[in-house]
Design a protein around this nucleic acid. Structure first.
Lengths: 194, 194, 194, 194
DNA sequence: TCGTAAGCGAGACGGTACGTCACGTCTTAAT
DNA sequence: ATTAAGACGTGACGTACCGTCTCGCTTACGA
């Protein structure tokens, strides 16, 4: 959220309303005009905030979008416990795909653009978002492993298998992030994991 | 390559050396400075060509990169026929991953950036590059289907499964496009396809 | 005028209408809001020209003002030949003071601001404006020397005596650049020169 | 110095060390980077003082510089009484020119910049600095008038003649504020005054 | 052979956004 | 009330590219 590593306790405190306005503006603009139409200048203008005030908090528009996305409710991944790996994965992937069809899809695309061009940002993105999502799958897999549903030794690989098609389709033609696809994918991962 | 629908037959013909210089400049700059450092302005400067001359051939830097990449040797996908789906997929994925570790990876990233921001370009990219690669896998799957190795009805889904992890890793941390991973993936796809 | 040392002969030629618009905008803005209210940004906006287009011609607003002033008619100093040093000086100083009471005074003040803060600019100002004005006085003094009206050996000093009070009053309280003062000054210089 | 018209007597008293630090910082920065590099922001930073603390005392950087300069020893003009106008003027001008060659020159230039852009400040500068200096000359002239050395009726004009060349040279090329020049000038003023 | 039609290098031009700097005001907690 | 610290709206800075344009020059082909 705030860029400071340690919270300062001196000086005028940052206005939380400003934080909110910036995030809101970033979301609005991304939805209205796509990521191409998003700029630090535009965010500042829309949120009625000075450019410096945005730069004080974020290095780039990517950071703004990331922060805005992290604040989203549907980012809180469900941690379903249906009793079977397939059920768990289906639940998680369905939720993921559904989010991907909405605003979150646009935001994810925006983050991808930034990450592809900036390694530092890619690293931050990984820690703040990607790693969290991966951990959710890892947890499912651990439970599956206890039940004997998972024998494949390489957890990382399996997680790639879960999220790979999601991002692939986010990149090229968003038309297929359907619930049916989510189910197919869960099934496929189960087979691979066995 | 040439943007004209119908070849004009009057006036001074385009200089092929210029085409070459532009592509070369795009490659060099992408490698040296990443996609962020790539600009139409820069391409023109580096190739010693007027800006207009670049615009006469390409709408955007994405198109330049796409054209440059298409001209690459390792873009010609192998069409292995090892006798088994697993063998075929392993061969194809190994080749793909290897390319992804080199320059082609940078170029693919560049194309992704452009595609994410421009739907028109995304469509062109799909037709010129993605569709071709997908067709290669489709062919393997057809052969596997004849042999009875493939029973899964949804070919499109399986192809997503093949390429999804590749792009996912191209986005986030390129460190894992190893030969071993290619093999793992081939194996997983086989299981899903069965 | 144009910043280029040698005129290029390739590329699209600069639009003279743009030159004109920039100078006009600079003059208008200086008169309307004083030098403090003058900015490269404002000049560009007022003249309906892109900021880069201004920067392509001038390094700073000082240069713009200088160029604008040099283009002025009343910059062409009179070279009076009244037959006496006192007559000549009176004519020249009266003209100078009169100009100083009008727009040229504001512009001169603007140039002083810039020169005081930038040695490089001060040098250019000297060559383009100050030196020219000094040469006019030098010519008068030479004629006076032939007539025996001038015996003082240090021409530079005498010129300082002519222009010093002018700039002093331009700096502090512009109320006294009267014709009477011009005459007094001419008289005083004559005495000093004798 | 202190901006308050009436001294307040409640609350925490102002720290005199702060006053000193601000003036010192202003001097240092002016010498190091010229007036262009001087800013309220910079003064505060260099003096280790909050920005507000500077603004509480001074309206603008010009005021700071003025205050700093007024505090200088060599600002106390000598009131020589050599017995002749020429002697008096030579003494005063030599002192003035010498100071102009040092830090005081830079400070004077700085004040000129501010005064040229801000009429209110120009007025304050006149009262606090210029008028004082002019009065010193006026005193010399009065004495000269008693002795019969001065017959010229316009005292103001003569004072302009004394200080004009000084400021002129402060503006354009400081190389000539020599002792010899001071003497020449004193001589010329004497002749004009006679 | 000569005109017409493009290609080409060069660079001007109106734009938009960048990221930074300083301004002058403000809000906080501590003194 | 003063102080250090720093947030904040504002406005300008100087730069980078964008995509289009206008020059003068050069290559071709076809009449």
């Amino acid at each position: 959220m705030s860029m400071g590593i340690l919270d300062r306790m001196t000086g005028r405190p940052r206005d939380p309303a400003v934080d909110e306005a910036i995030r809101a503006a970033a979301l609005e603009l991304t939805q209205e005009q796509g990521y191409r139409g998003l700029s630090m200048e535009g965010i500042a203008a829309r949120s009625g905030v000075a450019k410096q005030t945005v730069y004080r908090r974020y290095r780039s528009k990517g950071e703004v979008v990331l922060d805005a996305l992290v604040g989203f409710a549907f980012t809180q991944l469900p941690d379903p416990d249906t009793g079977s790996l397939r059920g768990d994965l289906t639940a998680l992937l369905t939720a993921t795909f559904r989010a991907g069809r909405g605003v979150a899809g646009d935001l994810n695309r925006a983050l991808a653009v930034e990450a592809l061009q900036d390694d530092e940002f890619a690293a931050r993105l990984w820690h703040k978002l990607i790693a969290v999502r991966r951990e959710a799958v890892a947890e499912l897999l651990r439970r599956g492993r206890e039940r004997g549903e998972v024998t494949h030794p390489d957890e990382e690989f399996l997680i790639d298998l879960v999220y790979g098609p999601y991002w692939y389709r986010l990149l090229f033609g968003p038309a297929v992030l359907t619930d049916a696809r989510a189910q197919q994918l869960a099934e496929a991962v189960c087979r691979a994991a066995a």
